[in-house]
């Protein structure tokens, strides 16, 4: 075999194993991701679905308390029925706590859910099958079509939040690392350029680009899906700016040392991927175990996504988002100053 080929392969192996950072991102990180996702999706049979029951105060026994259904299919579902008022049920759907509720009306049952949400459909099928003998003739489906209860209404605020995050992490973080790699940072710092100006320029660019991206997304979803912002627009702008500040800080901290693109790649993914999965962008984070929920809720992406969601869907105003906005500002401040302290210009 070709000697130089073997040597090359050896050298590649050596560089790989001698670079602890690469080793971590390439080997350990995927394992951690698998573990996290495993926690969220494994033991599906044991997972608990909550279904709200509204309407008349007297309801059939079959739809009270906690029931184990679907035993005969070999796939066991635990369903918890809970009495609630209709507004409570609608709010729970909007927040993603439940996907379906049953309205008891006389001797008929009306299922309320978004037929486009496959998870809701599955719950409906399980229920239909198991409690059919209550009153088979009189069940009906009332699709939830009101704005704010559909999956798309859940998704769009999350997409805006994710856009803010990706724009900052990729835009600022990647560009800093690339400039360091090309020795551009070194060249720039040898001029009278003032360092705060350099970082501010990055943040301003992100605010402008982020605004454009967000407006595009909102206009599109308004025209296509009829999504509206039901809450306060100034509150939304505040959340948006606080989000950019927090993620710009995170990006600068992330990009403060390395000049290797391989490491940069890993870092960017390490910051963005877990949040994209955990923070309830695509599906509700209440599927994760209870102990994980407070941690997930403290993630910057969750803070941004939940705040925007409450403004868009639940009509929240300035006061409701004050707490997440302050936390975001603190995250931004801490990561920014830590990043500047350890920042390597060359």
């Amino acid at each position: 075999m070709n000697k130089s080929l073997i040597q090359l392969i050896l050298v590649h192996f050596k560089t790989f194993f001698r670079e602890p950072a690469i080793l971590f991102w390439a080997v350990l990180f995927p394992i951690i991701m698998v573990w996290v996702l495993g926690v969220a999706f494994s033991n599906k049979g044991e997972s608990l679905r909550t279904v709200y029951v509204t309407g008349e105060s007297v309801v059939p026994e079959k739809i009270t308390g906690e029931k184990v259904l679907g035993k005969e299919t070999g796939n066991v579902y635990r369903i918890k029925f809970q009495k609630a008022s209709e507004p409570e049920a609608i709010r729970a759907v909007k927040r993603g706590l439940i996907t379906l509720f049953i309205e008891v009306k006389g001797d008929s049952l009306i299922y309320h859910f978004d037929p486009l949400n496959s998870d809701a459909q599955l719950t409906h099928l399980i229920l239909e099958r198991s409690i059919a003998d209550i009153n088979a003739k009189n069940t009906s489906i009332d699709p939830l079509q009101a704005t704010g209860t559909r999956y798309i209404d859940f998704l769009i605020p999350g997409m805006i939040a994710m856009g803010i995050m990706n724009s900052c992490i990729w835009g600022i973080g990647w560009s800093l690392i690339e400039s360091r790699m090309k020795k551009l940072l070194r060249r720039m710092v040898a001029t009278p350029l003032e360092k705060p100006i350099f970082f501010t320029s990055h943040m301003i660019v992100r605010i402008i680009l982020g605004t454009l991206e967000t407006i595009l997304l909102i206009v599109f979803s308004y025209l296509y899906f009829g999504t509206r912002i039901t809450g306060s627009i100034p509150a939304f702008i505040t959340v948006f700016l606080a989000g950019i500040f927090a993620f710009a800080g995170i990006a600068i901290l992330m990009a403060s040392r390395t000049s290797k693109t391989e490491v940069a790649n890993g870092l960017v993914n390490a910051v963005t991927l877990p949040m994209m999965i955990l923070s309830g962008i695509f599906f509700n984070y209440h599927n994760f175990p209870d102990w994980a929920i407070p941690i997930i809720q403290a993630l910057p992406l969750t803070l941004v996504a939940d705040s925007i969601r409450s403004i868009f869907i639940e009509g929240a105003g300035f006061m409701e988002v004050l707490r997440p906005v302050s936390i975001l500002c603190i995250i931004g401040l801490v990561t920014f100053s830590a990043g500047l302290r350890v920042f390597k210009w060359y």
Binding site: K182, K183, R186
Partner: peptide, 15 residues
């Protein structure tokens, strides 16, 4: 000193 000195580094790349 930044104003008095001009320099070029080994292999600078630009944007």
């Amino acid at each position: 000193l930044h104003h008095l000195i001009g320099l070029s580094l080994q292999e600078t790349k630009f944007i």
